[in-house]
């Protein structure tokens, strides 16, 4: 406990020192104000216009949350089903690997036509950005499980659905979580990117809008917000991981 508090204090001190140096360098005129915004400028940008950045933040968080929910659900469900059915696995695994290699951003203009400039196109693009690696990881994870588990479950009277979701999916969880990490990172990237390309709201929009007006403080604020969302998402994932591995990895000796 004391070690943790001390570590926290050290980090905080370092962080404050960094911010202090940054501010000092700015005041001393060492930093170009168009390229670098000082901490005080960023804070001023935040409180200006009555905290308008919070609205942009809310929109982006909503889009990312929706995209995560959809990509996790579709990716895991498809991966578990396809991983348990050899024919479906043989067909879909190469297709998934191919799609992952594509620069998916090329389809964004099409999504704009279908879903408009609003949040829907961002949610759909975010989902598409993340769902394929989740599905592929889940699929290969389920495929690599020894058949003995499924045979045993069948003998115990488990039906297809129970075998998939009460035996195979939990067994594949380490692989699924690896997929979730990758897929979720891609979702955050996809949503912010699509906001920057064409939108009317959100952090991505906030950044590109203020960049065009040379409001460096607002741009930096947007970057900090985007980073904080990534950190938040990673914390949630670590939490999910810990929930499962409660009691240590040695339980997973198969």
């Amino acid at each position: 406990m004391i070690v943790r508090i001390r570590r926290l204090l050290v980090r905080l001190t370092l962080f404050l020192a960094f911010v202090g140096c940054w501010e000092a360098a700015y005041r001393a005129g060492l930093l170009n104000p168009i390229i670098f915004a000082a901490p005080s400028v960023i804070v001023k940008a935040a409180v200006k216009d009555g905290w308008t950045f919070l609205a942009a933040f809310r929109v982006t968080v909503l889009e990312i949350t929706m995209a995560i929910l959809m990509a996790w659900c579709f990716g895991i469900i498809f991966g578990v089903i396809a991983g348990s059915l050899p024919i479906l696995a043989r067909i879909s695994a190469p297709m998934l690997s191919a799609v992952i290699a594509l620069p998916l951003v090329v389809i964004y203009p099409v999504l704009l036509v279908w879903f408009g400039l609003g949040v829907t196109s961002k949610i759909v693009f975010g989902t598409i950005s993340g769902v394929f690696p989740i599905a592929l990881n889940t699929l290969t994870g389920v495929q690599s499980i020894d058949h003995g588990f499924a045979t045993m479950a069948r003998a115990m009277g488990a039906n297809r659905r129970q075998i998939m979701f009460r035996v195979m999916a939990p067994l594949a969880l380490p692989a699924i979580i690896a997929g979730l990490r990758l897929g979720t990172a891609l979702i955050v990237i996809g949503v912010v990117l699509s906001e920057m390309l064409a939108s009317t709201d959100g952090i991505g929009f906030w950044i590109s809008y203020h960049r065009s007006l040379f409001n460096t403080g607002q741009v930096y604020l947007g970057i900090i917000l985007a980073l904080s969302i990534t950190i938040l998402v990673n914390m949630i994932l670590s939490f999910v991981e810990r929930m499962h591995f409660r009691g240590g990895d040695e339980r997973f000796v198969r």
């Binding site: 003995g148 588990f149 045979t151 003998a155 009277g157 939990p170 067994l171 339980r251 997973f252």
Partner: peptide, 16 residues
């Protein structure tokens, strides 16, 4: 399952 149960060389216990 209510009439027959099986056992194999490995126990296939669910690790979690």
């Amino acid at each position: 399952p209510e009439k027959i149960s099986v056992m194999f060389q490995e126990a296939w216990l669910l690790p979690w």
